[in-house]
């Protein structure tokens, strides 16, 4: 059986909220190392890869590998019943029809129990190779969100160019052009505000802003976001979670002249 207890329901609520507009039905693959999810959007342009490591739960028990096929809209309805600070426990049998969710508020001695019906999902899995990216940029997640939202007002696409001097986001639209350049900067007192650039070669790629703005719904999960780029490979956008868990998004580039 599976039994996984999260100190705060907040984490799962935010993760599901961040991905539910991108992917609808997906398997939560549970094994002794944790709970993983990989799913592509309908157009096969963006991919979500989530890993909640066993260490992120306390306790965590998973006797047999089990795939929990979940409709995220339905899961959202159930998670709405959990307060952010509730203790959340996920439970499932070895061959489950339902996922049992328990929310506990230790202050008020309230215990809520929900069973979510599971579904059989035949999910395509993609092998994601380990990649040495040409450019890795770390920046505040709210800054990245602001840039994507601002540029989307002008255009559907953004060009991202990185050099040792900085990272430039630019777009061209019917009403005009826009560009935001961030230079590396270190703030000792507020390390969350740092912009860090590691570069082995310059990169220039174009991406759909609609997807990037969607990824930015995860900004509440982490104060910083990591962008990993290499020419002509999908962009990796990573939100690191506590206990080396993560929420990653991959986005195929736009290719052409």
């Amino acid at each position: 059986m599976l039994e996984a207890r999260l100190e705060q329901a907040d984490l799962l609520k935010k993760v599901v909220d961040a991905i539910k507009d991108l992917v609808q039905d997906c398997n939560f693959d549970c094994n002794d190392s944790g709970v993983a999810l990989q799913a592509m959007d309908n157009s096969h342009v963006a991919l979500v890869s989530m890993m909640l490591k066993a260490e992120s739960f306390s306790p965590y028990r998973c006797d047999r590998n089990v795939a929990l096929g979940v409709n995220l809209t339905s899961l959202t309805k159930v998670l709405r019943a959990a307060q952010n600070e509730d203790i959340l426990t996920l439970k499932a049998e070895d061959a489950p029809d339902v996922l049992n969710l328990v929310f506990e508020n230790t202050d008020s001695d309230r215990l809520s129990e929900y069973d979510l019906k599971l579904m059989d999902i035949d999910q395509e899995h993609l092998g994601i190779p380990d990649t040495e990216y040409a450019a890795t940029i770390s920046l505040p997640s709210v800054e990245f969100r602001r840039i994507c939202v601002d540029l989307m007002a002008l255009s559907e696409s953004v060009s991202i160019e990185t050099s040792k001097d900085g990272i430039k986001f630019s777009c061209a639209g019917d009403i005009g052009n826009g560009a935001v350049t961030l230079r590396p900067n270190t703030n000792v007192e507020k390390p969350d505000q740092n912009v860090e650039i590691e570069l082995t070669e310059p990169v220039a790629l174009t991406f759909s802003l609609k997807y990037l703005v969607n990824f930015c719904k995860a900004a509440g999960l982490s104060k910083t976001v990591k962008l990993c780029l290499s020419n002509e490979v999908p962009l990796l956008v990573e939100y690191a979670l506590a206990g080396s868990s993560y929420l990653r998004f991959y986005l195929a580039p736009k290719i052409g002249d």
């Binding site: 592509m40 157009s43 096969h44 991919l47 092998g127 999908p234 736009k254």
Partner: peptide, 14 residues
């Protein structure tokens, strides 16, 4: 104009 690539062009199904 540029064309949107799909993920399968980069990642192989397993």
């Amino acid at each position: 104009t540029s064309q949107q690539a799909r993920l399968e062009g980069f990642f192989k199904p397993i």
